[in-house]
Simulated scan of single mutants.
Amino acid sequence: MVTRPAPPLRYSIADDLRARIITGRLKPDERLPSEAQLAAQYRVSTPTLRNALAVLQGEGLIEKVHGKGNFVRRRLHQVTYVGGGHMAIDRDAARSTLRVTVRMTKMRARGGLASLLKVPLHSPLSELLCVGYEGDSPHSLIRFYIPRDLTPVNVRAEMPCWASVEATLAEARPALADTHEEVAARLPTRSEAAALRISTALAILTISRVSTDITGRVAEAAHLVLPGDRASALFTTHRMTPERPARR
């Protein structure tokens, strides 16, 4: 008879905590005991306990808030990217809980950015770092890179939704004519994981977008990051059907 080895302790701990979350013994937004307390409770080392928490972070069940601890994550609604910079969230989401924070920084075009925006090196640009939130939990991240003269003057530090961000950007530029989008899946960088409060082991959906206005000028480049546990992309193609000749 072959005896199977016991699973690593981190999975046993993760199974127990997962069961407590699913059954409601640990409720959404509830703070977990400290890592030292949990390690003592399960009689394991702190690194082993952190590995167990990383499993649950990767599943989107808990999130680590810097300086505050680990919290049970409230179920976030699904975010759907529908192309052209537009994002939709589940219809049953409470609209009052949605918001986008915006931080604008002045910078100069270097290397890849200069090539992407088709501007000379050191041209003045603006970077808009936008983080979408549902309640207090981040669900999406976008960095916009815009020629300085196309930067809107009325950028607010917080907006109610992504549509407000797009409308604000549109006020300062000619109408867009073409948008090229590239979609990929990968693991997040440490800074992306920290901004979205996710594990570095959770896959993300990334969309790189370059938009050209009706004059042929690149009006903006954008980089979108969406956590894989709550995001999808939907693209619809409208095809023209040839007209049939009229019957005589």
Results as ranks from 00 to 15, higher is better:
T3K: 15
R4K: 13
P5D: 05
A6Q: 15
A6H: 12
P7G: 04
L9R: 12
Y11T: 07
R31D: 01
E35F: 04
A40T: 11
Q41E: 12
R43F: 05
R43M: 06
R43K: 13
T46Q: 14
L49A: 00
R50H: 10
A52E: 02
L56Q: 08
Q57E: 15
E59S: 08
G60P: 08
L61I: 07
I62G: 09
E63L: 15
G67V: 00
F71W: 01
R74V: 05
V79F: 01
V79W: 01
T80L: 13
V82H: 07
G83Y: 03
M87I: 14
D90K: 10
R95K: 13
R95C: 08
R95M: 11
T97I: 01
L98Q: 09
R99M: 14
R99V: 10
T101E: 02
V102K: 01
R103T: 14
M107S: 11
R110G: 10
R110A: 14
R110T: 13
R110Y: 09
L116Y: 10
K118H: 07
V119W: 01
H122V: 11
S123D: 08
S123E: 09
L128N: 01
L129A: 11
V131E: 04
G132F: 04
G132P: 07
S137D: 15
L141R: 11
L141F: 15
I142C: 14
Y145F: 14
D149P: 06
P152G: 03
V153N: 14
M159N: 03
A170Q: 12
A170P: 06
R173V: 08
P174A: 08
A177P: 09
E181N: 00
E181K: 02
E182V: 13
V183P: 09
L187I: 04
P188D: 11
T189I: 08
S191I: 10
A193Y: 03
A195V: 06
A195L: 09
R197E: 10
I198R: 05
T200I: 08
A203G: 13
A203I: 10
I204E: 07
L205A: 06
R209N: 04
D213G: 05
G216C: 03
V218G: 01
E220I: 00
A221D: 00
H223C: 00
H223E: 10
L224R: 12
G228I: 08
R230D: 04
A231T: 03
A231W: 03
T236P: 04
R239I: 12
M240V: 14
P242G: 02
P242H: 04
P245E: 04
A246T: 13
